[in-house]
């Protein structure tokens, strides 16, 4: 099995620093966040430019080249509701370290992002929901099948669709947590890749609790076959848990210094 893929989530326009940097096209704050995440062990970096309705294409191109030039063509997830911006980003994207990820498609209004990924030989995050959160795993798996078929009809390799069960917040949806984990198991039984915004689970919890909850959940999810997650790689406890689970899963060979690499 391949090593768990971490997608660093910290280049996100919801952060005031990043938003400002994107408005001004000022590379420094963005490169600083990229470096922190890569030093902490992220494989992919997510680049969220927000809806970017006006200058999305220009902004995504700038972000992709700025980050890839600075960090040896680090692979990126292109994250925006603006499809043209994603396409523009892919047009300048260097694939030597991995295909671009389209973040994201769903089974509803954003299903066409699967077509976009297929047309551009990209990976796509396929969110198993349509209008609102899936009611149960029957619905999740129906969405999964629909998106899988749509991708394959257009020649995509099934491994390029990374299914997102949609991690749910514990405070309010505690009774749904095992269902999400079961969905991951079903993806895994179908030999499909999976990912998701894992830290959703701990939204609203005290700051010192979140790494503990996130680490416990990632371990349970990896046990069930989760192959990737969109995370804050600067969370040391979480990254140590992922590296340790990779050892138990025989995804990486153990060495005494495994936490340092």
């Amino acid at each position: 099995m391949a090593k768990f893929v971490t997608i660093g989530e910290r280049i996100h326009c919801i952060s005031p620093v990043i938003r400002k940097a994107m408005e001004e096209m000022n590379p420094e704050p963005i490169l600083k966040r990229a470096k922190e995440q890569l030093d902490a062990g992220a494989t992919y970096l997510d680049v969220n430019i927000g809806p970017a309705e006006n200058n999305g294409e220009e902004l995504m191109k700038w972000a992709v080249t700025t980050i890839q030039d600075a960090f040896d063509n680090v692979p990126l997830a292109l994250d925006t509701a603006n499809k043209k911006a994603i396409e523009a980003g892919i047009s300048v994207y260097n694939r030597s370290k991995g295909k671009p990820i389209v973040n994201s498609a769903d089974a509803g209004g954003r299903i066409e992002n699967i077509d976009l990924a297929a047309a551009n030989d990209a990976i796509v995050i396929a969110l198993c929901s349509a209008e609102g959160i899936a009611a149960d795993n029957d619905e999740r798996m129906m969405h999964c099948q629909n998106m899988l078929e749509r991708g394959m009809m257009q020649g995509m390799d099934p491994s390029d669709l990374w299914f997102d069960p949609l991690f749910l917040v514990v405070k309010g949806m505690q009774d749904k947590q095992m269902e999400v984990l079961e969905a991951i198991k079903m993806f895994s039984d179908m030999e499909l890749n999976s990912t998701g915004g894992l830290s959703n689970n701990s939204n609203g919890m005290p700051k010192h609790i979140r790494p503990i909850m996130d680490s416990a959940l990632v371990a349970m999810a990896m046990m069930n076959g989760l192959t990737s997650a969109i995370v804050n790689p600067c969370d040391l406890r979480l990254m140590e848990t992922i590296k340790s689970c990779d050892i138990f899963k025989n995804n990486t060979l153990y060495a005494d210094s495994y936490l340092e690499i």
Binding site: L253, Y254, A255, D256, S257, E260, I261
Partner: peptide
């Protein structure tokens, strides 16, 4: 010893 083989490469590079 596979684990030591890897470990040595790591520490030598360190």
């Amino acid at each position: 010893d596979i684990n030591l083989a890897k470990q040595l490469n790591v520490v030598i590079s360190q």
